[in-house]
Design a protein around this nucleic acid. Sequence first.
DNA 1: CTGTTAGCGCATTCAC
DNA 2: GTGAATGCGCTAACAG
Lengths: 338, 338
Amino acid sequence: MKKPTLVDVGQEAGVSAITVSRALRQPEKVSDSMRAKVNAAVKKLGYVPDVAAAALASKRSNIIGMVVPSFSNNVFADVLAGAYDAIEGTGFTIQIGNVNYSALTEETLLPNLLNLRPVGLIVAGVDQTRRSKELLKMAACPVVQVMDTDSDPLDMIVGFSHSDAAATAVGHMIDMGFRRIGFLGARMDPRSQKRMAGYRYALEQRGLFDPALQVTTQSSSSVSVGGHLLADLLAIAPDCDAIFCNNDDIAVGAAFECQRRNLAIPRDMGICGFNDLGTAAEMHPRLSSVFTPRFEIGRRAVEMAVRAINGPLPAEDRIVDLGVELRVRASTNLANVS
Amino acid sequence: MKKPTLVDVGQEAGVSAITVSRALRQPEKVSDSMRAKVNAAVKKLGYVPDVAAAALASKRSNIIGMVVPSFSNNVFADVLAGAYDAIEGTGFTIQIGNVNYSALTEETLLPNLLNLRPVGLIVAGVDQTRRSKELLKMAACPVVQVMDTDSDPLDMIVGFSHSDAAATAVGHMIDMGFRRIGFLGARMDPRSQKRMAGYRYALEQRGLFDPALQVTTQSSSSVSVGGHLLADLLAIAPDCDAIFCNNDDIAVGAAFECQRRNLAIPRDMGICGFNDLGTAAEMHPRLSSVFTPRFEIGRRAVEMAVRAINGPLPAEDRIVDLGVELRVRASTNLANVS
DNA sequence: CTGTTAGCGCATTCAC
DNA sequence: GTGAATGCGCTAACAG
């Protein structure tokens, strides 16, 4: 009553073990009658291949490794959800490594992941350490970088340009009539830095950039921090008339702070968030935000990795820019205020 | 220049392969001098054990399987974060399965997970299908159920009582003077059902239960849904003076809806959420909520699984009730209003 | 405390 | 299109 092996299935079907193996992995290389017999035997015995033995014999696992900076950040939770959605039915398995936003942790995690002989690797961002990049380049498997298309990929990449997205949002705010637009940011990981760069670029184009209006902290992002950040900004620059926030949590926290201070949104303070995670859109007033295709990024990353397992992708399929969608709502709509 | 094996390390150290294996896995069974030589050779060659070969030979992996209902729900994201935090340095690996809140998906996922020969299993909740429970019982490894202590465990369990938690919160609301307390719930998975039962129990104790005040939907939970749910409740019961919400998203959405309707919180409408995810505490006014120890649940689950790998835990350590913490804020504090 | 022998279950390579 | 032999890298069981 133990687990049936290929040999057991072979005996049941009256063929050799290797034929069973082939019938399962490369059905087209086996005659129809053979395949039918094998399938019947597999079903009858409830045979399930042993992944460890397969990995040992073939020197490759069915694992796609995925390294994420955090679980608690909704952005990566959505990417993960997309990835798990896409992995279904492929026969591959996702192995997650959590690096807590630390490039150094990533460096120690990668060798472990590589030791699993993954057939594909998905990593967040393009800002690995040099050593990490070397490891990824040496990895004998396709590598997909996700979230970020602001740099050239090691191998493949899917995401959007954080700087462009931020520049678009800030450009919109300028168009709406805001002139003293601040930047509120927490954690300030590489992608946040790029968003801040996009913010700066958009303002510089119009001669409106003022470095004093950028308020950031290294502590991790939260609604609560958003409130504090706005308080800090207002202490420095009471004439600030709008804020571009590095993410929605901060935007929401800043909006609450406005309510506490009786600052009317958008009349006294325009607000635009980033990611469009849900809460911002439901506030009163509703907050504008930049929607980012997180779930889709996860999906596509897995798809690209799986495709690339059977040979490298053509150059034009190796870089996928999914773009973003600026969602304008009441919080930046100065026109309707008077 | 290929990966060194145990044999290579053995040659380098002048011992047999098996001694190296032992020195690495059971250092105490090897003499000091031997261990030193082996460790030096391991370091020199950069030896890393092959997990596939180890799993095949020993019939057990280093994998702890974990099945979660969702990534996007912050609650499970925190549990995952805790689990990954605790796994560090144990030498074990977490393999996640996402079942999208579907007991049937869980049933098909479990055999795949079991095929990995996990040394431990962590599953969300106690409401598996009968077939899933059978699989879990047959699994030759410790099983930890998480989140929920409202039923007896299959093996081990860590979490809190959802019904008690809800009853406590609603009891508090009654004490504060609310009398027509509604229930707002989405998704209504088994744990949500238990919270609703606790809500009902608390009200029945005081003769205040009115079934018409329970408004739920099967659609998944979001801030937006919270607003709609409150609108529905108010249409049915305009005299409703407070709401206990199945989670914080709904509470926040309902609070926004109050703002849109110019209902003062808590004077016109008391609000209490569940989980205390952050946003609720920062709103204006701040929302009361029931804090749940999600991260700690993840940590403890891994710890229990790891401990149990070396033999079953004593009965008193197999059930861990971490409790919850009612966090009273302005949204239920009728006393300070008048 | 250390070494020898013998597989774990599968996939690769080569025959037929 | 199918099969036989061989070994992946490691550990269990036993021997010394």
